[in-house]
Amino acid sequence: MGQTVLKNATAGAKVVALSAVQAQVVALPAVAGKPLRERLGAWLKAVLVNILPPLITVTLILLVWQLTAHGPQSSLPPPTKIWAEAKDLITEPFFWNGSQDIGLGWRILVSLQRVAIGFSLAAVVGVLLGALVGQSVWAMRGLDPVFQVLRTVPPLAWLPLSLAAFRDSQPSAIFVIFITAIWPVIINTAVGIRNIPQDYRNVAQVLRLNQIEFFFKIMVPSAAPYIFTGLRIGVGLSWLAIVAAEMLTGGVGIGFFIWDAWNSSRLSDIIVALIYIGVVGFVLDRLVAFIGTIVTRGTLTN
């Protein structure tokens, strides 16, 4: 094709290119030139600012708890008693003394595995259904009322039905996770897809992208911030549901551990398990949020 590159670049572009180079030259020594001690000091300061306040809060809570639950007639154990009774659970999450006497780390992992399967299914099916509802007016009219009704059903209300259908506790628990996590994923994905700017749709039309290309190249990246909001809510809900579901289905998970501890009046064990659940739920939430920020970088700003 006899098309030649225009050699005579306009003056404007040259100026632009030059200033970009200059900016780099200025920026590089600024980073490298900072003394190590100064950077270490800034890092230490950031740690202190972020770690110190929650540390003080936790200490205060423990102190108040200790004082209020101190007496012999107190119905709940104070922190010192928990430490004395459940030290092995706190310090050794991964001991293994036979099939029912295992560390909380193992139980958490079993619960996490169920959540992972149920939540992954919910993510895939939820994004696909959300895309359908977001893209097609008729699918929305037909499906949205059904979704709106079903999403208000509490997770545990599904359990008897799923036990009847699957006749086994493991798939039933996974189904409860799935059905709990899927609604926010569907609804947020649909909103995200309805909010795809017309400009991007025009680009796709001019390029004649087919449905599959449009889904992967325009829809998913454009709706990614919404999808990840849905996934984040979904993972939180599934962690809520798994504990309740395991209490009823039994087995090895952290939920059944709490129920078992209650039946044998080990209140200290229950409190330790609660803290485990809280920390793992927090990590799950942050994990999905972190993946979200990596995947959607560049999508939010334009």
Binding site: D199, Y200, N202, V203, Q205, V206, L207, R208, K217, I218, P221, S222, A224, T296, G298, T299, T301, N302
Partner: peptide, 29 residues
């Protein structure tokens, strides 16, 4: 009567896809 690449459009607001690099935006086309 339908859009197509033989009638390419340069949109007023550029309509580049923000999650793709400059290169990838052109590469998509």
């Amino acid at each position: 009567n339908s859009p197509g690449p033989e009638r390419a459009v340069v949109f007023q607001n550029h309509s580049l896809l923000p999650w793709l690099t400059v290169y990838d935006n052109v590469a998509l086309a």
